[in-house]
């Protein structure tokens, strides 16, 4: 069971490798990347440096080229695939059929993983993508543990699951909420609730209002901790109730599911967070390295350590964590 850690920058990548990540995943500094954030990600030069660093430690590097290519600029995506292969990366993470077909034809020997953005949740969908020679599928964060188990037992395909980090509540790759409000979505622009559309208004009474392209996402009292206005984590009204209608600001944490994921032969545990700091990546990687080593050594005696929980909750959105969809009750 591999530990796969996020790297939005070289320092984050080095932190992940130094703390024992088996592999890291990165993206390019353009709209081919579903985490296209200002000031982050890799260009051709530092991608090569990243590959050298990772390979010197005998670990692996995955590159996510996981938005959907635009019609008038398809070559940008094609060139991203070629550049990643040229830089010597180990794995391409792809979602768009046109790029999967291109990579299968032109780079048949490079390992390909199906991105979570392709939203493959069932055996028939996974079978569809086999024709492109994919070796692994990254599962959307919508499946329960019994559903993950059923897939793992019936599908002859490596499965990668999200283990920790921000929680996407919608089936990835099929969520247009962000473009509905801002015109930019993960599929088209590699962005969700982009920062350029965020506005904070402080009222005379100390209330802080967050808006996304003019739409009020939340309103915080002076004593409340204000979170980034990701639109699915806003407080809205339904009927007479004001609450987090879609999802609370919280992070996914599967530390307690580790023995089960290990037993079900999950190939890789993915840590979310390419937008996070090197210090965050360092702390999270250290904990997950310890946890995975422990579960491999003795799955029956594994238990979540209190010190892990403390660090994990201090690094989580709203200081809360959840098992998300893995747990039936969450639904």
């Amino acid at each position: 069971m591999e530990l796969l850690c996020p790297a939005g920058s070289l320092p984050a990548l080095k932190a992940a490798i130094n703390q024992g990540a088996d592999a890291v995943y990165v993206g390019l500094r353009d709209e081919t990347n579903a985490r296209h954030f200002a000031g982050l990600n890799f260009n051709k030069d530092n991608l090569q440096e990243a590959v050298r660093y990772v390979h010197a430690s005998k670990r692996r590097i995955h590159v996510a080229i996981n938005t959907f290519a635009h019609p008038d600029n398809w070559a940008l995506w094609q060139q991203a695939v070629d550049a990643a292969v040229h830089a010597g990366v180990d794995v391409l993470i792809l979602a768009d059929i046109s790029l999967l077909a291109y990579a299968a034809e032109h780079h048949p020997h490079v390992e390909k993983h199906l991105s979570v953005q392709a939203s493959a949740t069932n055996p028939a969908a996974i079978d569809f993508y086999r024709q492109f020679g994919i070796k692994r599928v990254v599962l959307p964060r919508v499946l329960s543990m019994p559903q993950v188990r059923a897939l793992s037992r019936t599908c002859d395909m490596e499965l990668e699951v999200f283990a920790f980090g921000s929680l996407c509540i919608m089936a990835e790759g099929r969520c247009y909420l962000s473009s509905y409000m801002t015109g930019e979505s993960p599929n088209t622009a590699g962005a969700c609730s982009p920062a350029t559309f965020v506005r904070w208004d402080e009222q005379a009474d100390g209330t802080l209002e967050s808006r996304l392209n003019g739409v009020m996402i939340d309103r915080f009292r002076e004593d409340e901790k204000a979170g980034y206005p990701t639109l699915c984590k806003g407080r809205f009204s339904v009927g007479d109730e004001l609450y987090h209608v879609l999802e609370e600001p919280t992070s996914l944490n599967t530390l307690e599911l580790l023995p089960e994921l290990y037993q079900e032969n999950i190939a890789s545990l993915k840590i979310e967070g390419r937008q996070r700091s090197p210090a965050y990546v360092e702390k999270i990687t250290r904990i997950w390295r310890q946890a995975i080593d422990l579960v491999k050594e003795s799955p029956d005696h594994y238990a979540v350590r209190e010190e892990w929980n403390q660090v994990v909750s201090s690094l989580s959105e709203g200081c809360q964590t959840t098992l998300g969809a893995y747990h039936r009750k969450w639904k």
Partner: peptide, 21 residues
């Protein structure tokens, strides 16, 4: 009204404080 997203969670059940199952 355009379908914009699909989730594991049922938001209508949640709005009535019911579990999805």
């Amino acid at each position: 009204h355009m379908p914009l997203a699909w989730s594991a969670r049922c938001f209508t059940a949640r709005s009535e404080n019911r579990a999805k199952d």
